[in-house]
Design a protein around this nucleic acid. Structure first.
Length: 112
DNA sequence: TAATTGACCCTTT
DNA sequence: CAAAGGGCCAATT
């Protein structure tokens, strides 16, 4: 059953603090689905807007936006991040904004 | 049933 | 730095 994966992924994305970013692969790993970064992208696309997920805090492993540069979605994502204080170095997000959670802390919070 | 398609990633050239 | 090749897998055609 695939729906369970999505819930797990959404819960994990919800843990990303404002002003920080994480990669698709990182989310997959933290959600207990190593190697399934593509599933994370799919989960985000399926997530209802009412869920208000911090989707803009998820980007590629090289810290660039997943959307086509210049597209409406990319511009929106960029502005949302800037509004949170995330800094950019050209097309990519500054490394200092990369989320590095303590595993134990994350697992603790995911239990609820 | 088979092929294609993603809001992707990693290692090796 | 760029390209290539291989992984991944649910959903759609």
């Amino acid at each position: 059953m695939s729906a369970a994966y999505y819930a797990q992924i959404w819960q994990t994305i919800r843990q990303i603090p404002a002003g920080k970013v994480a990669s698709y692969g990182q989310i997959a790993d933290l959600a207990g689905l190593p190697g399934r970064a593509r599933l994370v992208g799919k989960a985000l696309g399926l997530a209802p807007a009412s869920m208000a997920l911090p989707w803009h805090r998820v980007l590629r492993s090289n810290l660039t936006l997943a959307f086509t540069p210049g597209s409406a979605q990319a511009l929106l994502q960029r502005s949302l991040l800037l509004a949170e204080g995330v800094t950019f170095a050209g097309q990519r997000v500054d490394k200092t904004s990369h989320w590095r959670p303590e595993l134990a802390d994350l697992l603790f919070r995911l239990q609820y």
